[in-house]
Design a binder for these strands. Structure first.
Lengths: 226, 226
DNA sequence: GCACCCGCCGTACTTAGTACGATAGGCTAC
DNA sequence: GTAGCCTATCGTACTAAGTACGGCGGGTGC
């Protein structure tokens, strides 16, 4: 029964599992997964620590929950498109979601109980591949390949020694100078001749590999017309 | 206070940074990265907690160190082989190292300061690609692609809801039954028709994608003779 | 033989997860 | 309406973990 507007003054919007998980994502986004503590989360939610335990069993459940929340953000294949477009959009969407929430990659390794959004996601992609005419076996191959590439790329992006886009040179320059001694000549060559050049953006590498993979997969379809 | 004769007990092999890191790897291997604490590590080394701080600055340095130790285990390309063999061996070796130490994948996301073994590894692989005739730009493409795939595959292996090889059916069977309701039809199809079949081993998927990638990369070399 | 240094350790402070039970404010049944 | 109850929130407190700070003992250089 909604009555008074001043309801919120006395009663902040009630806590829910949903709000707990969203708050956890916000904290992890802002300060890394290390800054996500029950206490920091409670404070962010305007609540005392023990209150969150009425909506989740323990911190592990929060971690499982936010990983699943990230999967929520990944675009599912839409029926209208051809399979390559579906896969490309899905992969890009996944990569972007993981780069918005880099901590999710690290969590995936330890959380072995996928949530509903994760399962729904897997199911949709597998379904799209099957619908595109891939055999069950080829679907397994293709899915493992596409997912590995996507997650792995996101992992590398997260592990880059810098965060933004253009800062590459600024951060890598001194690092390179240190290596000039000659310990890592090929690394230095690649960096100075390519990566540190003005318009380079590691994120663009993603499309190269993705196209290469999709092209190669296309050849293994029964009907290579599309 | 027995300042006594039994000095032999007191004379354990002296602690070193090396021994600290190796001990840390052993603990993480045995019980997961979560079980690696300064105290557990000290006990494992037969020493008191504060002693380890004479060899590492803090726990973060330990984490950086053990990631680098894992890279130590990855086979570097050997000059004799042709580039595809080099890349294949390197990728397989990396995958195996990461599956021996799955916690390393999760750590890679948060540790953005690569150690010497990591740098040496990158340098060697880049050097092998350059020596194989790839342009600088193609080397960047190829390396991002191969590494992404390798790490991503290892990540998926680590995230599998089971550990061993043959246990797949045993663990997945009940899970599947729960899904039979029809929420994830394609996932169920893939599982029952393929993954849960007797000789299936997810690890074998690795070679499929790796060969596909290497084949495609070969076409982009200036001299596609080898 | 002595002072010094280095590697090890005891103590203790701080932060984090969370068990246990209390409480408050509304809601149900009479 | 009112007694009791239910549920979301909270207070307290215990445990585990990272680590600052200073002490100590034994081996070394002179």
């Amino acid at each position: 029964m909604p009555k008074s507007i001043s309801d919120s003054a006395h009663h902040r919007t009630p806590l829910t599992r949903e709000r707990v998980l969203r708050g956890a994502v916000e904290i992890a986004d802002a300060g890394g997964i290390g800054s996500l503590t029950i206490r920091s989360l409670a404070q962010h939610l305007g609540v005392k620590p023990m209150s969150v335990y009425h909506h989740v069993a323990n911190k592990d459940e929060i971690l499982d929950g936010i990983v699943d929340l990230v999967f929520t953000e990944i675009e599912l294949p839409s029926a209208g498109d051809d399979w390559r477009t579906q896969m490309r959009r899905r992969a890009n969407s996944a990569r972007l979601a993981l780069s918005r929430h880099p901590w999710a990659i690290g969590l995936m390794e330890s959380r072995t109980t996928p949530g509903p959004a994760t399962l729904r996601h897997h199911d949709a992609v597998i379904g799209a591949l099957r619908a595109a005419g891939f055999t069950v076996e080829m679907t397994a191959h293709a899915y493992a390949l596409l997912d590995s590439y996507t997650y792995g790329f996101a992992l590398q992006e997260a592990a880059l020694p810098f965060k933004g886009t253009e800062t590459v040179a600024g951060v890598a320059e001194p690092m390179m100078r240190q290596f000039s001694a000659g310990e890592y000549p090929h690394l230095v060559e690649l960096a100075t001749d390519h990566v540190l050049r003005p318009g380079y953006d590691f994120g663009n590498e993603f499309d190269f590999g993705l196209d290469l993979i999709l092209d190669a997969l296309a050849k293994s379809r029964p009907d290579p017309s599309t």
